[in-house]
Each structure stands twice: as structure tokens, then as C-alpha cells.
Amino acid sequence: MAAHPDETKNPSRDPERRQFANLIRDRRAELGEGLDAFASRALDPVSGKRVTRGWIYRLETHESVTPPQVEELRALAEAARLPLGVLQDAAGQQFHGVDPLVGGSSAAKAFVHKLDQLPADQRARLLHFVDSLLPADPPDGEHR
């Protein structure tokens, strides 16, 4: 994947639209891996397409990059050890302005977006609280 020739028109350069870059950078840090190790695993198991170290570096440093195709997303999902859907959502946000939260009321969407600003331990406590307000899930196979 090559650098985008016109950086002024690349939405990934917008500071508000760095979800995918931040996801990859943060996940690589969580895994405790350098660029070389991470890139060595960025191989799509279906097509054999590889994502290069240089592309990952440019992405993480918010340089202009060509938006990834599904083959590159699968390769990065392998390297990040995350479900493909997580990467697709973040890439859609950063490169295409797509909000992955499509269901629910506008108030619910606003609430979910604010959750990302909370530390992980506070999100977990809040989720536990919300779970305590809702009826228990029915046994497998039963519907409410």
C-alpha cells in the first residue's frame, strides 16, 4: 500500500479521525511488539497479502496512507489478534467517516461515544451497573 499523493484530501490526516491508526498502535503496544514483529505476522491467511512495516509505521504516525482493503484488514487482524469486525469498524470511521453504531436512539449513540472517554476500569464498572438494572438473560434457546 502506497502513500496517498494528496495529503490535504486524505481524511486519515484529520486529528478527529484516527480511530484505526490508534487501534493498531495501541494494540501493538498491548502486545508489547515492535513494528518488525507485528508486521511479520500481518499476513492475510486467505489471499496471502502482506501489510508492510512501512505502511504500519506511516499509519501509526498519522502520515498519509492508502485506505486498507479487506485483504489488508484481515492481515492486520491476524497481527493484532483481534476480530476482523473490530478493524473494519475502526477503518470505516477513520477512512470513510462511517459510524459503526447504527442501531439505537440518538441518545444511546451519544452515550456510547462518551464511553470511549472513560478509563477501562470505569467502563467495566458502568457496564456491571447497567447489567444489574436489566433482567437476566434467558437460558439458551429461549426468547424473551
Rank of each mutant, 00 (worst) to 15 (best):
P5E: 04
P5G: 00
S12H: 13
E16Q: 15
F20L: 03
A21P: 04
L23F: 12
L23W: 12
G32T: 09
E33N: 00
G34R: 03
G34Y: 03
A37Q: 11
F38M: 01
F38P: 01
A42D: 03
L43D: 01
D44C: 06
S47T: 15
S47L: 06
K49E: 10
K49C: 01
R50K: 15
V51I: 10
G54K: 04
G54L: 02
Y57C: 00
Y57G: 01
E60F: 04
E60Q: 14
H62I: 00
T66D: 01
T66Y: 06
V70S: 07
E71V: 00
R74V: 02
A79F: 07
A79D: 03
L84M: 05
G85K: 13
G85C: 05
V86P: 01
L87K: 09
Q88Y: 04
Q88N: 02
A90S: 14
A91P: 05
A91E: 01
Q94H: 10
F95T: 05
P100I: 05
L101P: 00
L101A: 05
S105D: 08
S105G: 11
A108V: 08
A108P: 00
K109N: 07
A110W: 12
V112R: 13
H113I: 03
H113W: 15
L118M: 15
P119T: 02
P119V: 10
A120T: 15
A120F: 11
A120H: 14
D121I: 07
Q122S: 11
R123M: 09
A124T: 15
L127I: 14
H128A: 15
D131T: 06
D131L: 09
S132R: 10
L133E: 14
L133W: 12
P135L: 07
P139V: 10
R144S: 01
R144M: 03
